[in-house]
Structures are given as structure tokens and as C-alpha cells.
Nucleic acid binder design. Structure first.
Lengths: 358, 358
DNA sequence: TTGTATGCGTTATCAA
DNA sequence: TTGATAACGCATACAA
């Protein structure tokens, strides 16, 4: 699908200069320093460029010379298309791109399969900096980011030496959920958790796996639940926790089914994301269980749909998170220490929680 | 925020080769053609690289040499952050990125203010191809895309010589809306249209402006309405049309207010996007006008929220649109003529239209 | 206002 | 299996 007719080798700055009988510098200046030329020479250059089909200085060659790419990279460790399926991520992107707009820089979405070891995409990304979003501790892509000689900002996780970080206090936030449920009187509870490791794995989670989870956001959320439940005298090791690799409605539904198989007597299901919580509710509806009368359900994130549907959840400021990440990346840090930004969350009581049936 | 200690000049492939007393070719091969080296030499190279902090071949330099960027560019002629506020665009991006995933290529979001003449971002984008989404006819950014010696695909608009295109039949689709309303008996109708030109402008639209609209998608939608209304004996020039530059709830609401000022007796408002339609409904609610009893409302696009809220609208397959655009871009066209893909739309009767009050 | 010389960091080609 | 050489296309310091 070559649109351009290729009879002669494509024009370059040098060939254009030769054609005009002037130096390359002058042609370069015509594009980059218009004030360094006489206006008539400049228009002569531009006219010749059009005539010869010269598209202007090659961005890659210029980039090599100037050491600027004009773009920042976003590393997700998900398939790219996932980003547009998750409302939380869309909000994050809105915030991040608002900063890109201000800085007049592009945003490069970097493809990185979660379970792939191939790091070529990040090694090969022509960017002036990276934002790494919610990566597991042991992801080789992150290492690949950190060796690149450009700034980086990490969102949510993992902690890394000398890198700026934007996050929320997941543990404290989730504890509010636990406290809310125990205050209502719930004692038999199940948990549907997002992925805890890089490998595709669905199923029950024992304490050991919780503690060595490579997603410490998830680990912290579980720890927050443990804090709250144990404070109310509920033994954590008797609470069934199941893990789902995908963050989707379907995963939430199957997680709920698994929880109910493990303990049919539960009165509440805690999901570690709103999306999973919707799946849980879907499965409960399928079984003609009422929410919250028969089973209470909670989420995490505070995506728009959670608010409109009245899910009891914790809201975190995704757009702000993206904006702050962009700011940290785009305005250089002149101090020695990396910067840490922790954003506020808000516990929201919805209509999906109530006292347990007696 | 330089993370890397800069005591010595950063290592390059050449400096690494010198350090090891081998040629640059060999170092290059260690990264790009591991099978061309003895394993022990390769590990020696890699160890030295780690020791010297060499991050691997510079992506820009490589890109200059190989003439591959590993990314496709998306040109929006909107602020980047807008992309994540418009559900239709999010769906499009989901489809486009699903193809990027398959091709293992990145996606570069290119910042291009709608009313800015500065074309530097597209001239400077290091990409292997462009997708231009819903650009006005006269946008200089598009011209900048077309001079670049890489493939391009246009979505929705504008028509351009020799470039692949993905679109829907906006005119026919919108006519279905008109036919639906006239069949119900509506005769006094108002229209709230998305922007018709690059310049920021809100207000009433006369026939001349409709016809010279630089957004031919919008022009076609208005033409579709005209087709339908005139077929039912409703003179088009008596239908008030107002334009809004932004596609937002607020814009829809103010558009509705303007329409109602122009003709308080209307029984239906046609919006050319679902988002605008939601704004219209919001304004009507504010005035205690019931939908559809007092005023019928229609949208266009079929975003998810339109379906859940039962808006009468036309649904277009945004995700498919993005996917097809990606396919066209990513699989080269070996034939001479550009390819044209036209996708199906579906008229959806919702609960926002009914017979006019009598 | 214009030109000269040099380097940015890499990979392709071909030879050894 | 390894190496020498020549691009790739441009921008910048400096000289004229």
C-alpha cells in the first residue's frame, strides 16, 4: 500500500539542497529556524520541497539528532485493547492525556502481554519517558523500563528505587469496606480478588499465595480486609478468597459461583474491583439471590457505573491519578529523592449492602 | 529527574564494542541475531552491557536504520483527552488496538488541536502508518499525513485520493431517524448538530453553512434528515438547526435551549450524536418537559449508555470500525485502487420517541 | 545570511 | 563466527 510513487529515491534534506544548489543547513533552517533565512529563499525551499514531494525532515533522523521523541510511553502489561474496556483505565488515560495535551507531547501505548517475557516493545519504544501502570513486582518489562535512560513514573505499583510513584492507600481503603460489613453484622464473607500473579490462574487462594502476591495493590487490599475482619473477631483464614486473572464481568460471576460453592452460607461478597462486583451481582441474580437482602456485595474503584448503580465501594480518583503521573513525568524532579504522591480515596455506601439476613 | 548516574557518557553499542575489543557488528548481532554468535561471546557481551549500564540498542537509531518505528499513529484533531471522554471513540480505540495487539505494534496518539495550524506533531511522529479519525476536509493535519511516505487509513472522513477509507452511510442512517419521526406524525422538529467547521462556533445554521460544512459526516447526517422530512412534505428550511462545537452533555443542553427559543412549539429534537441527545434530555427535564410525551428525542451512534437508557438512535459498530481501520493499515494493499469499507448501521427504536402531543 | 564539517547510534552488506 | 565499511537523514557549532 505504498501511496507515494517511487520512481526516484525519496527526497531528503540533502537531495533537496543539492537540487536547489544550496547547503543542507539552509534547508534545515528553512524548517527549523525560519527567521534565519530570507523569506524569499525560504519560500523557494518550500516550493521545491512540495515539487519534489519532500515531506519535511524525517522525524526519526531528527529525533536521533535532537534526542527527543516528542512522546511519552504508557506501559500496561495488558493487551492494549484491555485499556479501553476498563472504565478505570479510561479515566486514568483521560487524566494522563490532559497533561500530554498541555505539554504538547504524544502518548505511545506500548504493547506488552502480561505473561510474555519479550521485552522488545519497551526497549524499542521511542519515547522521552515512561509511565508504568499497575505492573506486577516481577515483570521483566518494568526492568526494561528502568534501564532506559529516560524518566519514569510508576502508578500503583510496584515500588522501585529512585522512581516517582503515584498511588492510593489500598490497605486503609479496603479496611473501610471490612469495617462497614462487620459493623452491619456480617461474619461469613467471601472474597473475589483480582489477579495476584503474572501467570494465568483462577481459583482459591491460600494465605501463602496472598502474602507472596506480585501485585501488591491486591495484596494490600486483602491485607486491609484482614485488618478489619480480625479487628471484629473474624478469623481471616476462614474466609474463602478466590482469584481471577481477568478483570471482567464474566470473571466476577464465575468467582461468585466458586465462592458460593466453597461456603454456601456467606452473607456478603467482597470484590476487589467494581467490575468483578458487577459480575458477582450478575451471578447472584442468576441464582435468584437478592442484593443486599440475601447477599451484600461491595466493589472497589468507584467507576462511574458503580456510582449510578449504587454499589457500595471505595472511590479512587483515577483521572487525578493519571494527571499527577503525567505531571511528575513531564516536570523534571530537581531534588534528589523520588517523589511519592498518595491520593485520597472515599468510601461510598451504596444500596448493595445491608444487615445480613437472620 | 535523571535517574541514571551520568558520570561517564552513556554507553553505546560502539563504546561497548571498544571496551570488549570486538566490533560493533558483533555487539549488534548479540542483540539482534543471537544465533550468529558463539553463546559464550554473547553472554560476555550481555554481561559487559549490564556492567556498563548499556540499555541495549537505541530505538531511535535502530529505527533510522531499519526504517521501522513499531507504532502506528492515530490522528484525532481533538485534544487527546477528548478521546477518553467520548464512549464512541473509546470503542473505536478498542477495535483499533485489538489489531495493534495482533500485529504487535504500538499506538501513538498524536496531539493535534482542532483549530491549530501547527502540524509539527504529525510531521514529527515516528510511525509506520496513520489512521486519521473524523477529520474535517480542510484540516492541514491531514495534508501533513498524506505527504508522509507511509500508509494511511481514513475513518469516516474526509475522502482523499488513493487512501483507504472506513465509514458508514450516515445519510441513509439518519434518514431512518427522519422517517421514524415523520411516521409518528412529527412535523415541527429541531436539530442539534455537532460541529460543521474547524473554527469554534455555536449557534444557528443556515442552509449555506450546512452545505459547505467541512465535516461531511455531519453534512450527510443533515442531508439524510432533509431527505426524510421533505419526503414527508416538511420544508427543510423551516426546521431550526443549531450547531455545537463540543460534543458534550452541556453542549446538547444549551443546544436544546437554543432550539426551544427558536421554536417553542417543536415536538421533537434530533441530535446528531447520543451525547448531545443526553444533553437535550437534560435540558428538557430541567424545564419539566417529559420525554417522549411532550418532546421526542433522538440520537446517533448507539453508545452503550444510549442502549441502556433506551434512546431512539442509530447504532454504528465503532469497535468494528476501529478493527477494520487497523486491518487496512496493517495488511498492505497490493492492488492499485484504495479500499473502501462501508459498515452497516442499525436503527434502534427506544423509549424517547412517541407520537406528538395533540 | 549561508556553508562546512562532524556526529547522533545503529544495521546491512560483504568480505575475511 | 567475526569484522570493516558505508549508509540512514538530520542538526549544530563554527567559520565565512
Amino acid at each position: 500500500m505504498e501511496r507515494i510513487s517511487r520512481r526516484r529515491p525519496p527526497a531528503t534534506l540533502a537531495s533537496l539542497a543539492a537540487e536547489l544548489g544550496i547547503s543542507r543547513t539552509t534547508v534545515s533552517n528553512a524548517y527549523n529556524r525560519p527567521d534565519q533565512l530570507s523569506p524569499q529563499l525560504r519560500t523557494r525551499v518550500m516550493d521545491a520541497a512540495r515539487a519534489l514531494g519532500y515531506p519535511g525532515p524525517d522525524p526519526v533522523a531528527r529525533s536521533l539528532r535532537t534526542r527527543k521523541a516528542g512522546a511519552v510511553g504508557l506501559l500496561l502489561a495488558e493487551k492494549l485493547s484491555y485499556a479501553f474496556r476498563d472504565p478505570a483505565l479510561v479515566s486514568f488515560l483521560e487524566g494522563l492525556t490532559s497533561e500530554c495535551d498541555r505539554a504538547k507531547t504524544g502518548l505511545l501505548l506500548i504493547p506488552a502481554n502480561p505473561d510474555a517475557e519479550d521485552v522488545g516493545a519497551v526497549a524499542g519504544a521511542a519515547v522521552d519517558g515512561f509511565v508504568a501502570y499497575a505492573m506486577p513486582d516481577d515483570d521483566p518489562h518494568l526492568e526494561a523500563v528502568l534501564v532506559r535512560p529516560v524518566p519514569a513514573v510508576i502508578c500503583d505499583q510496584p515500588l522501585a528505587d529512585g522512581v516517582d510513584l503515584v498511588s492510593v492507600d489500598d490497605r486503609a481503603a479496603m479496611r473501610e469496606i471490612a469495617d462497614h460489613l462487620t459493623a452491619l453484622g456480617h461474619r461469613r464473607i467471601g472474597v473475589v480478588s483480582m489477579r495476584l500473579g503474572r501467570k494465568h490462574r483462577d481459583g482459591p487462594v491460600d494465605i501463602a499465595r496472598q502474602q507472596r502476591a506480585h501485585y501488591h495493590v491486591q495484596r494490600n487490599r486483602l491485607a486491609g480486609l484482614q485488618d478489619g475482619f480480625e479487628a471484629a473477631g473474624v478469623a481471616w483464614d476462614r474466609i474463602p478468597v478466590v482469584e481471577r486473572f481477568e478483570n471482567s464481568i464474566e470473571a466476577g460471576a464465575s468467582g461468585a459461583a466458586e465462592i458460593l460453592a466453597l461456603d454456601p452460607g456467606i452473607t456478603a461478597v467482597v470484590a476487589t474491583s467494581d467490575i468483578l462486583a458487577f459480575g458477582v451481582m450478575e451471578e447472584l441474580a442468576r441464582r435468584h439471590q437478592r442484593v443486599p437482602e440475601d447477599v451484600a456485595v461491595t466493589g472497589f474503584d468507584g467507576i462511574k457505573e458503580a456510582l449510578t448503580r449504587g454499589l457500595t465501594t471505595v472511590s479512587q480518583p483515577f483521572t487525578e491519578k493519571g494527571r499527577r503521573a503525567g505531571q511528575l513525568l513531564l516536570e523534571p524532579n530537581h531534588r534528589a529523592e523520588p517523589r511519592r504522591v498518595s491520593l485520597e480515596t472515599e468510601f461510598l455506601t451504596g444500596s448493595t449492602t445491608a444487615k445480613p439476613r437472620t
